[in-house]
């Protein structure tokens, strides 16, 4: 296989079908590492990685950190409250200082769209986008795709409905790019106030009602609803959101087939998703989390220059 990822992973939009396929295929052997008693391979031994989180995050940061540690990298976590940014340092200065410390990779989570690309263009280290504003969250998109592929055995032709606040969602954008590139059909479902302008031009089907999504889809990816959306006039109330757009057991009972249920977390139980759905037999919310570590290991490994053949940890070693 000749595809490589290039220097950075800022999103799935710039990636080719082959590159996305490469990451998903490389993640397969890494799944096994996390099942071992000794969860470690030496692939990134001696590499230093900074997890630079300008926004609060629990699961993404921990997932990256586990991925890094299971690849034997040395990691440093920089959280916003402890950083120089609160002293007024600009992102470009932060980047230059990290560069000066000769780090190999930066995993960045930032509230501004484009922050990962901005950083990647200014430092020689590899940059991995762990979520930038409303732009992309590529490793989330990849882990969602890996989870779908695990369950259905394919992505080609699969119908995936992304439900909820598409307008403000970086998860939605990464899923749209990744899934459409691999031949899946993507639908978006949510109140019109939370669908972005011209979203249909991204090659997605607009599903105005949650009932439409349930009729149409093979899988639902239910997005977290930010609770402050009512205050900015996008929604009247959480209660009404649940009544009109909530993924409930009753609604799913009317589906023509069993739907796989994904959620990027953290969930608002009883708002966008009911507990009996989240905890139900068709939910893959926890397998998503497990796959997150494998996908991130694959991304780190490939960006560091690892070859896909070498990724088989069984025969691994430096």
């Amino acid at each position: 296989m000749s595809a490589t990822l290039g220097k950075d992973l800022v999103g799935l939009e710039p990636l080719s079908r082959e590159q996305i396929q490469l990451i998903l295929d490389t993640a397969e052997p890494f799944k096994e590492v996390s099942e071992r008693a000794i969860k470690k391979v030496p692939a990134l031994r001696g590499k230093t990685i900074v997890n630079l989180f300008f926004e609060a995050s629990t699961r993404t940061r921990i997932s990256f950190e586990f991925a890094e540690k299971r690849l034997s990298a040395d990691t440093v976590n920089v959280a916003v409250a402890a950083s120089s940014v609160s002293k007024g340092e600009t992102l470009v200065d932060t980047a230059r200082n990290l560069e000066a410390m000769r780090i190999d990779m930066v995993v960045i989570r930032h509230g501004a769209s484009g922050a990962a690309q901005f950083l990647g263009q200014r430092i020689r280290s590899n940059v991995i986008n762990a979520g930038d504003g409303k732009h992309e969250h590529p490793t989330q998109g990849l882990l969602d795709m890996l989870t779908l592929r695990d369950r259905f055995g394919r992505l080609e032709g699969l119908k995936v409905a992304i439900c909820g606040d598409i307008l403000h969602s970086r998860v939605a954008r990464s899923n749209i790019w990744g899934l459409t590139k691999l031949g899946a059909q993507v639908g978006v479902c949510g109140p019109a106030t939370l669908l972005p302008r011209n979203v249909h031009e991204l090659g997605v089907t607009i599903l105005p009602r949650i009932e439409d999504a349930i009729q149409w889809a093979d899988a639902l990816n239910v997005l977290r609803l930010q609770l402050e959306r009512m205050e900015s006039g996008f929604l009247p109330s959480l209660r009404e959101y649940n009544r009109v757009f909530g993924v409930t057991k009753e609604r799913l009972a009317r589906a023509p087939k069993d739907l796989l249920i994904l959620h990027p977390g953290p969930m608002n139980r009883g708002v966008e998703i009911d507990s009996d759905v989240a905890d139900g037999p068709h939910s893959v919310i926890l397998p998503q989390v497990t796959n997150g570590v494998a996908v991130r290991m694959a991304v780190l490994y490939l960006l560091a220059g690892g070859s896909p053949d070498w990724a088989n940890p069984g025969g691994g070693g430096e």
Binding site: H135, E136, P196, R197, N198, E201, L202
Partner: peptide, 15 residues
């Protein structure tokens, strides 16, 4: 500007 490019870039648009 609010349009396809703002949607892709994830930036808040001005209609």
């Amino acid at each position: 500007h609010e349009g396809l490019v703002s949607t892709r870039l994830g930036l808040k648009g001005i209609p």
